[in-house]
């Protein structure tokens, strides 16, 4: 599903070139469950941003679902993100003024789906994460675990094939974190490719494939 070929990414910091990724090559099949681990500054987040088309590699080639997405323009990559990729963030990133249902509906709104269908799909998504009765709650009225479950429902609203989670449990206590991971793993079992960045060894150990990173390089990969 995902084919990374010698992907590098350099950042300009002042007058210094910082190499965040050094010729990373990876191959990920559909339906995999991967944990990317490594110390901060190892390039995990950069890799995730590149996978999510939020950033472009300085060199190398990225193909998603057999299609070269390296040279896509801004509008095209927005469309790919919308249709194929779901994001879950450490800080949830819910829009504070919108209630849970409206937050979940955001990708559907951006995709231009009619309100009637939106309503139906949002109800199903919230039911899937067990928050049906919280649909009209504002983010400020929800607990951390509930916030992350709303965010997961939002990430799944367009039925993406690829689910990217950047430290999804980083802001949650251990029990809630396990619960949230359970929800994500449930989605993986239903077919979504799940890639999780984490510091947490325990969370990382749950993944079937673990990729270790350091200094912008892949230093270990349980698949090879």
């Amino acid at each position: 599903m995902i084919q990374l070929d010698k992907i590098s990414r350099t950042f300009q910091v002042g007058d210094q070139q910082v190499l965040a990724l050094r010729e990373v090559s990876l191959s990920i099949a559909a339906g995999e469950y991967i944990a990317i681990m490594g110390p901060s500054g190892s390039g995990k987040s950069t890799l995730l941003n590149l996978l999510g088309l939020l950033d472009r590699p300085s060199s190398g080639r990225y193909s998603l679902d057999g299609r070269d997405v390296t040279g896509l323009n801004e509008a095209e990559s927005a469309r790919v993100r919308r249709d194929k990729i779901g994001f879950v963030f450490q800080f949830f990133h819910l829009v504070p003024r919108l209630d849970a249902a409206a937050n979940v509906a955001l990708p559907l709104v951006l995709a231009g789906i009619a309100p009637a269908e939106r309503k139906q799909r949002v109800a199903q998504l919230l039911a899937d994460v067990g928050l049906s009765e919280r649909a009209d709650h504002l983010p400020s009225q929800l607990s951390g675990g509930q916030l992350q479950r709303v965010a997961i429902a939002r990430a799944m609203s367009m039925h993406p094939a690829l689910l990217l989670a950047d430290e999804p449990t980083g802001n949650l206590d251990r029990a809630t974190g396990r619960e949230v991971m359970g929800v994500l793993e449930g989605l993986n079992q239903r077919g979504a490719t799940l890639i999780v960045i984490t510091h947490d060894q325990e969370i990382g150990a749950r993944a079937r494939r673990r990729i270790g990173m350091e200094d912008g390089r892949v230093i270990s990969d349980t698949a090879t």
Binding site: A78, R81, H93, V95, L106
Partner: peptide
């Protein structure tokens, strides 16, 4: 900024 970034991650184009 965060909200704009989020909208983009969710698939909003620059035009939107």
């Amino acid at each position: 900024r965060a909200e704009i970034g989020l909208l983009k991650a969710l698939g909003a184009s620059g035009r939107s």
